[in-house]
Simulated scan of single mutants.
Amino acid sequence: MAVSKGDTEDEPREPHNLIELIETIEAIETPSGKLRFDAVLEAIGRRSFGPLLLLAGLVTLAPVISGIPGVPSLMGMFTFLVCAQLLVGRRTFWLPAWLRNRQLSSDKVHKGLGWMRKPSRMIDRLVYHRISFMTGDFAIRVIAVTCFVLSIAMPPMELVPLTVNIAGVALTLFGLAIMARDGLLSIIAFIITGISLFTMLYNLL
């Protein structure tokens, strides 16, 4: 959900698809060999719900990155905070310093993003504006509630193989749906969310 009021010329250009998001992250300089989460947020902007969901989805989806212990839970906390703030009406998303200052190996991040480049190009070709009521203001709030619930489930999902990656698919599709106003992706993401939650509960209960 983009915000125009109070924008400045220094506000980063919002990515509009998967490839643009990947290229934005890859362009961040990492002289220390570590990629700070805050640097990624600064590069993609803190005011748009879609790109932030897409970021959480990509990190959770990529096996090279999500396989690092604690990363899915970290993305769950990130999603939780972003969704909670959208639901209470905040226009710029705030995150605590301990989350912003988290770092990952830039080599692993680039490897994970490289793994996703080819499928991302294919997906971007299939995304376009359709079934717009599924990405309107009310629908975005429903998406936020759904992702809020999903974020709470992500830490226990680490105990069930692949379920957290399925959650990453759902977050990725929700982010893309909002950015491209593609209601079909939103519908698919709701279905995948249900599958990921059912799979987790089935294996843990």
Rank of each mutant, 00 (worst) to 15 (best):
L201A: 15
T30E: 14
L21P: 05
T193Q: 03
R13S: 12
V164E: 11
D10K: 15
P156V: 11
L104T: 04
V164G: 08
G45L: 06
D182K: 09
G33A: 09
V88P: 01
L173G: 00
L205G: 14
T24A: 15
T199K: 03
L87Y: 08
G112N: 07
V3G: 02
R36I: 02
N165T: 12
E14M: 13
F190V: 08
R46K: 13
W98M: 13
M154R: 03
P31G: 10
R181V: 01
I187L: 15
G50N: 07
L87H: 08
G33D: 13
I140R: 15
D38L: 13
I28T: 03
I188R: 08
L21N: 06
F133W: 14
A84C: 01
F190G: 08
T135K: 07
L87S: 05
E14L: 11
A84S: 14
R121K: 15
L53Y: 08
V71A: 03
V88S: 13
G194H: 09
G89M: 06
R91T: 10
P119R: 04
D10F: 14
I22F: 11
I44E: 02
E23W: 09
T146D: 14
L185S: 03
P15F: 11
A97W: 08
E9S: 11
G57V: 08
M75R: 01
P155D: 06
G136R: 09
I28E: 10
L205N: 11
